[in-house]
């Protein structure tokens, strides 16, 4: 028996196939955007971090602020200057 698709049914199939293709393309793009880290890169990163730690003298504990600071022009004795 020969199956004949109606035009509307065909359009639905084409749309679903297109949708599946689109979704998998996005997945692939997403996957490609996530770089793979190899052992060589990890070793380089660890060496870099070791140098930074040595430079800092340890592990900084950071206190974040956004504290306004007033400024003025002064001479070398911290006396205010006028222009």
């Amino acid at each position: 028996m020969k199956t004949i698709l109606k035009p509307t049914q065909t359009l639905v199939y084409i749309f679903v196939a297109g949708l599946i293709f689109f979704i998998f393309s996005c997945k692939k793009a997403e996957f490609n955007n996530e770089p793979k880290v190899d052992n060589g890169t990890m070793e380089k990163a660890k060496a870099y971090i070791a140098k930074q730690m040595e430079k800092e003298g340890g592990i900084p504990e950071i206190f974040v602020r956004n504290q306004k600071v007033n400024t003025m022009w002064v001479n070398d004795k911290n006396e205010p200057l006028s222009q």
Partner: peptide, 12 residues
């Protein structure tokens, strides 16, 4: 503007 944005301590 001028802001103090962070300070850190490192125990050596």
């Amino acid at each position: 503007y001028c802001n103090l944005i962070q300070y850190s301590r490192v125990f050596r």
